[in-house]
Design a binder for these strands. Structure first.
Length: 550
RNA sequence: GUGCCAGUAGCUCAGUUGGAUAGAGCAACAGCCUUCUAAGCUGUGGGUCGGGGGUUCGAUUCCCUCCUGGCACGCCA
């Protein structure tokens, strides 16, 4: 509800009376320059050619057929090549502000999702090391998307998938084993593609401390379980420090232990899209648009094990069968190649899963700069910046905002030195400061903000340009949230908040509240309360705190 | 070679799904604290929207092509 529904309906009616087709859908937007009006439409320019008239003439004809009262406007005029600019009737803003405050922390919510269950998988780091900056970006984006879908009416499950089976885990176990033996004075070699991070040495030491009966780490299975458990614990601490909570932790190993991987093979074979070649079992993914067929199960001489893509398919079958009509995977762009394969694998089952299932939100890589040089992120080489490092250095709120302020599909340069040295000038403080300032009005004035309603207050005295601009921005919030949720783009919220915070600072600077004459005081308190609520709700979506004072 | 993403101010990035004079932050320069927080505000300078074609009333946005950077293309995960 952004208040344009009535206007849109009126425009449609007027256009149709002039011969426009039934499906005409007028685009209504904010004019670039606020002095043009409150809303604008390009309708006349879009329709002019089809109706065989000049844009400005058509605009005039449309205006003449508009019922201003029903559309909730007080004026309409033609500008430029054929725009129609509208002024909203004064009481529309006043009613909007009252509705905003009445909604409180519910302001911005909608019901687009209709309580439909949606699974959002993110982070899903292998338990082979601490979470690095790339995981941080993913955690911030995934959590924010979850929140966005939550407030737009979806029933959200946040899920973390542990790849705790397979070759990488074996690598991890062998790496720890080698370090244990080295600590014991044995000249043990690290595995070919082992993990060289410092934390492996720590793990080895802990293993020795806790397993006195196995000083040489001969029990590889015990080493593996120990390492996975400890690293999961570390990752949990990282996520906790970042304020991210998951509803479900799904273990890849469970897919094997409860037979779902085998089951997936049987179902794919039964569906008839498989064949054997060179001793391996293949899936004819080219039938579904892939550029080449994929191996599902290796040949005997290669071990006869399923390839990674099979548990991926089995895993996504569980999402579908657990009732998630919608599944969203937030992953780094380096996982791009899995998108087609997972979807194609699900299609090959012929079990009615939609073609675009699951949806993917791929974010581009994070480049870390330190001391003017790029830090290569490599778990195996052991050089990278962890999420915990960043949080310790610049704070949780700033890290969250930094990861969310850019579009996911552009690369992100995280300069650790800049983030640290300029933490006081990080944009997030600008937003939080706006919240602290309007909160300060209530604190200093000893006024209960929650008692503000706006009823019985004459809001027409909010006539400063800064006030009109701010009111419009606040009333845009629900549409902004709906758009960001639909596009799965939380950075829009970050951009909006920064923009709106600027309008609040401007207003705060220009217009005093306390000690003003009663009518102005009362009206401005309403605007302060509305500003506070929008900032608070928006920051909450991004997982960022809204301090009352700074 | 193929596919995906990106290229916008000195730097980092937005740009409401094709609209009006392309915007922020940082950096630079000049100002504003007896008044609810100066972590703020005001002003100045800064652009071939990577290049070239096309589509149309209108293109940073859509299509084609080329250039540059990133990622991915395995019986690795």
């Amino acid at each position: 509800m952004d208040g344009t529904d009535l206007l849109r309906a009126e425009l449609r009616r007027a256009a149709q009376s002039l011969g426009a087709p039934d499906d005409v859908d007028p685009v209504i937007e904010r004019p670039r320059d606020p002095s043009f009006g409150d809303w604008a439409t390009s309708l006349a320019m879009v329709l002019a050619k089809r109706l065989g008239t000049k844009p400005r003439d058509l605009a005039q004809a449309i205006i003449e057929r508009l019922d201003f009262a029903r559309a909730g406007i007080s004026a309409a005029d033609i500008a430029g090549p054929g725009f129609i600019n509208f002024r909203v009737a004064a009481d529309v803003f006043a009613e909007g502000l009252r509705a905003l405050i009445a909604a409180g922390d519910q302001y911005g919510r909608s019901n687009a999702g209709n309580a439909c269950p949606v699974n959002i998988e993110f982070v899903s780091a292998n338990p082979t090391g601490p979470l690095h900056v790339g995981h941080g970006r993913q955690a911030a984006i995934g959590d924010a998307i979850s929140s966005l879908l939550g407030v737009t009416g979806w029933r959200v499950t946040r899920e973390f998938y542990y790849n705790d089976a397979g070759a990488q885990i074996m690598n991890l176990a062998l790496s720890v084993q080698a370090r244990v033996r080295q600590l014991g004075g044995v000249d043990a070699a690290m595995p070919e593609s082992g993990y060289h991070g410092e934390y492996i040495r720590d793990l080895a030491q802990w293993y020795i401390d806790e397993h006195s009966s196995d000083p040489n780490a001969d029990d590889l299975d015990a080493v593996r379980q120990f390492a996975v458990r400890e690293l999961r614990r570390e990752q949990d601490l990282d996520l906790q420090a970042f304020g991210v909570k998951f509803d479900v932790y799904f273990l890849e190993s469970s897919l094997y232990s409860d037979g779902r991987v085998d089951d997936a093979i049987k179902r794919l074979i039964a569906a008839g899209h498989t064949y054997e070649k060179d001793g391996a079992l293949w899936l004819r993914t080219t039938d579904f648009g892939d550029d080449k067929d994929r191996v599902m199960r290796r040949s005997a001489e290669k071990g006869g094990e399923p390839t990674y893509f099979l548990p991926d398919v089995a895993y996504h079958i569980t999402k579908w069968e657990r009732g998630f009509a919608r599944a969203i995977n937030v992953q780094g762009a380096d996982h791009h190649s899995t998108v087609t394969r997972v979807r194609v694998g699900l299609q090959a089952l012929d079990m009615g899963i939609p073609q675009g299932y699951p949806e993917y939100v791929l974010h581009q890589m994070v480049t870390v700069m330190r001391a003017g040089e790029e830090v290569k992120i490599s778990k195996r080489a052991g050089s990278y910046v962890t999420v915990r490092d960043l949080i310790d250095e610049v704070g949780r709120d700033a890290v969250r905002y930094f990861f969310l302020m850019r579009k996911g599909d552009s690369q992100l340069v995280f300069d650790v030195d800049v983030a640290r040295s300029q933490s006081d000038e990080n944009p997030v403080y600008y937003i939080q400061m706006a919240h602290a300032r309007v909160s300060g009005i209530f604190r200093v004035g000893e006024i209960d903000a929650t008692a503000i309603t706006g009823t019985d207050v004459d809001l027409s005295v909010l006539s400063l340009p800064e006030e009109q601009i701010l009111i419009k921005a606040l009333l845009d919030y629900p549409a902004l949230v709906a758009g960001a949720a639909e596009a799965l783009e939380p950075h829009r919220v970050a951009t909006y908040l920064h923009d709106t915070a600027g309008k609040i600072h401007l207003w705060y600077h220009k217009a005093h509240v306390l000690n003003e004459p009663e009518p102005i005081l009362r009206a401005r308190l309403v605007l302060a309360r509305a500003s506070q609520l929008v900032l608070r709700n928006g920051l909450d979506l991004l997982g960022i705190t809204a301090p009352e004072r700074m």
